[in-house]
């Protein structure tokens, strides 16, 4: 009989006070509690984090990198979304 697959989890760590959790990697675990413990053991051995999130990899819906052109091109042409597009004379100072 084939060995059943152990579910994959994505691990997110808050590295410093006030920062958002950031993806650091993945691991296998049979449930959420074990995933959290394994994440602690694997990803925070050198004091990398204050807090850990684990999320089943299957729960993540991702965009297709092959379609990045179609996905992100509309933002490329909208330079007026950037502050530097607008002329504010230097004498007026920072705004």
């Amino acid at each position: 009989m084939a060995t059943p697959n152990t579910p994959l989890w994505e691990v997110f760590i808050r590295s410093r006070n006030g920062l958002a959790h950031k993806h650091v990697g993945s691991l296998h675990a049979s449930d959420a509690t074990l995933a959290l413990q394994a994440a602690r053991d694997v990803y925070t051995r050198r004091g990398e984090g204050l807090s850990i999130w684990v999320v089943p990899s299957s729960a993540i819906t991702a965009s297709d990198p092959a379609e990045k052109g179609m996905m992100f091109e509309p933002a490329q042409s909208k330079i007026y979304r950037h502050p530097t597009f607008y002329e504010v004379p230097e004498e007026v100072g920072h705004m």
Binding site: Y80, R81, H82, P83, F85, Y86, E87, V88, P89, V92, M95
Partner: peptide
């Protein structure tokens, strides 16, 4: 917001 304020000032200017 930075873009918002600058675009406003540019209009007034």
């Amino acid at each position: 917001e930075s873009f918002h304020q600058r675009q406003g000032y540019e209009i007034v200017l």
